[in-house]
Design a binder for these strands. Structure first.
Lengths: 228, 228
DNA sequence: CTCTGTCATGTTGCATGCAATCTCGCAGAC
DNA sequence: GTCTGCGAGATTGCATGCAACATGACAGAG
């Protein structure tokens, strides 16, 4: 489904190489290849990716603006590290804001959006049914949630929300999948699809809220999250 | 409590020159020196500010990430332009989100924060009492609101909110000050200070919400806003 | 043994050169 | 007269060189 592959929502669309580097770093961070707190050196990354320092700098700044890395003036960037409270606060906020975007988005969803939602839902269920692959599951889940955010009809809300739930992906590394909460999440996704198909924004909003709160609860005891 | 002085909230803290350029561009945009839709050329700005293109590039990217300028791949940056609906939506969202930050922030405010709030309030009132200088008024107002956002205790909420209410400042160019709504805003600010001094987050939240909604209403008929 | 001052190293931040891309105007053909 | 193709100018994007700052080790004094 077309979907902007690297441009995301905030359209900080830079060049060609720069986008590639950004996407690569984003993937590595979200898949836990970089440990939390690990320093990211411009030159090392540049050599490793076969580009110069400039696009790496750009990508790191972009990640910093999105809250995925911390930067200190003359020291550079390091992957953000979350405390348990940080994660809890993040969920608290998502629970308040993302449902709003959801309600706004539902009436605006087109045919292809709905089709994509159904497909993503189906693929996630397939993964859960079989042996689950955490990395792929979160990717699909992010895409699923992203549809609502990106279609909310307000660029700035999209930017704001990306800033809120992008950082959450870095905490996913040590996640443990609890079968029960996973099942509950799948049901929530199904309900979201139904609500979307029905064009019922309020329903979708309510489902999304309980979905997020339920997930928050499931992760209350651990330092990891499970934002599926 | 350390206080970051120039790093703002999202701490995309870059270098020295880069920050200066960013601040300068932000000021010019918010004061309407750059028209909406106007293209911003790197080299021209660099010459004008007496620096090289690099820090200008960085600043523009930062502004793009915050939604203050639009960038297209090989064309550069231009100041965002808002339709009336965009502005309305922005207020709608602020009304939902900023009060939450306000509630979270109030219990966390220190002595110096309270003192600053009082001072900012006093200065704004002084300006309103005399002949008002729009530019300075909005600057103070932004600072006033920023205190709550920055002290909300969650970095990511701060980033998200900056994304929401930073863009609003660009629409201020043609604003017209309606004496009555201005007076109402001043009273709201006073109440916010009182609530903050009392440490009553819920009160502050309620005041902030009505403050924003009132402002939205005041700007409903125009294409400009009046976020004081 | 501990603490402090100095120095070497590494990294970021800024400046500049070069290539790729886009835009716009103009000439020529139909 | 209108449309198409070409070319010059301009602007961004990437690469690289240089200077400033921060960090860490080591030597020397107390």
């Amino acid at each position: 489904m077309a979907q902007e592959q690297a441009g995301e929502a905030g359209e900080p669309a830079s060049g060609d190489v720069s986008d590639r580097v950004y996407a690569e770093l984003l993937t590595r961070i979200s898949e836990g290849e970089f440990a939390a707190g690990e320093r990211l050196f411009e030159q090392a990354l540049a050599r490793q990716l076969g580009v110069s320092r400039t696009p790496v700098r750009d990508a790191l700044k972009r990640l910093a603006a999105e809250g995925l890395v911390d930067t200190t003036p003359n020291k550079g960037a390091q992957v953000v590290s979350f405390t348990a409270e940080d994660t809890a606060a993040l969920y608290e906020l998502r629970a308040q804001f993302e449902p709003v975007a959801c309600r706004l988005a539902v009436p605006r969803l087109g045919e292809e959006d709905l089709a994509e939602l159904e497909e993503l839902d189906a693929r996630m269920q397939a993964i859960v049914a079989g042996g689950h692959d955490p990395a792929e599951l979160t990717g699909l889940n992010n895409a699923f949630h992203a549809i609502f955010v990106e279609r909310c009809g307000n660029r700035h809300l999209a930017i704001a929300l990306q800033a809120l739930f992008r950082p959450a992906i870095v905490t996913r590394t040590f996640r443990q999948y609890d079968p029960r909460s996973l099942e509950r999440s799948m049901q929530a996704h199904q309900q979201l699809v139904e609500a979307a198909l029905a064009g019922d924004g309020e329903w979708a909003e309510a489902v999304m809220r309980s979905h997020i709160l339920s997930t928050r609860h499931a992760t209350a005891g651990t330092t990891s999250d499970a934002d599926v």
